[in-house]
Write a protein that binds this DNA or RNA. Structure first.
Ligand SMILES: [Mn+2]
Ligand SMILES: [Mn+2]
Ligand SMILES: [Zn+2]
Ligand SMILES: [Zn+2]
Lengths: 123, 123
DNA sequence: ACTACAAATGCAACTGAATTGCAATAAGGG
DNA sequence: CCCTTATTGCAATTCAGTTGCATTTGTAGT
């Protein structure tokens, strides 16, 4: 009983994440594929991919949900970088050490780094 | 020319932040004061307070905008904690050291810590 | 205390991301 | 090829936040 049918829409979205390891906003995909599939479909496919552990997500500085492909060198929890200039967002392959705070039992964390990417710096 | 008039609405909201150092969502205040002022007014007062450097804000895990009072022991950039159980959110007075990533010029960062607070742990 | 004027507010309409219910479609196991 | 049911399309809805504009109100200056 396959839980994930390889539909045309599913493949189109999966291709994006296979060709691009950046973090992509749901709304960008909705827009990109507006003539290929319904926006509801985009959201539901992203949901499934996340539940299946193929993608992970976070809320960016503008409150938009972004998704990126899981990979082996993604530590379980890693920061996400956003370039103010060109808008690209990437998973940052760095281990962040949480300060030990006695008052809280910290279970997970989200880290957003905002700045300028290499490409935008050199242009 | 006073830029900040001490209106009734302004005082009501300011009081909340003076009595409570936690990070409070805009929508919570809109709800709290629904019979005292218009929601637009809440948003605009929060905006002003942030521009004047009295409050600072961040987007929480649900994509909601939260505000907290600036204070001397708030380092310029500090993490924010959210208790999964009771929902309170606090500024965490800890210096976080960003890993130096050659690929990016990092100008600012946002750090969300999710877990359980002391109160919820002991109950 | 009065006035004038800009700042602040209320209201209603609007935006934009994301979700929901339901009927129609299509993937793929047998 | 059939059948089951996962997936999709569509339209309506939600929910936080914003905008335009007319009205009110704080307060500086007299
Ligand atoms: Mn990532
Ligand atoms: Mn804070
Ligand atoms: Zn860039
Ligand atoms: Zn708690």
């Amino acid at each position: 009983m396959s839980v994930n049918r390889k539909t045309k829409s599913f493949k189109l979205i999966m291709d994006v994440f296979n060709e691009n390891k950046n973090a992509i906003s749901a709304i960008y995909l909705v827009d990109q594929f507006s003539n290929k599939m319904n926006k509801t479909t985009v959201y539901r496919i992203l949901d499934r991919l996340e539940n299946d552990g193929i993608l992970h997500s976070f809320i960016d500085k503008q409150g938009l949900k972004r998704y990126a492909k899981d990979s082996d060198d993604n530590s379980i929890t890693h920061p996400h970088f956003l370039c103010q200039d060109c808008g690209i967002s990437t998973c940052v392959k760095v281990n962040i050490t949480l300060p030990d705070i006695s008052e809280y039992n910290i279970k997970s964390s989200e880290h957003l780094l905002i700045g300028t990417c290499k490409d935008c710096l050199s242009n």
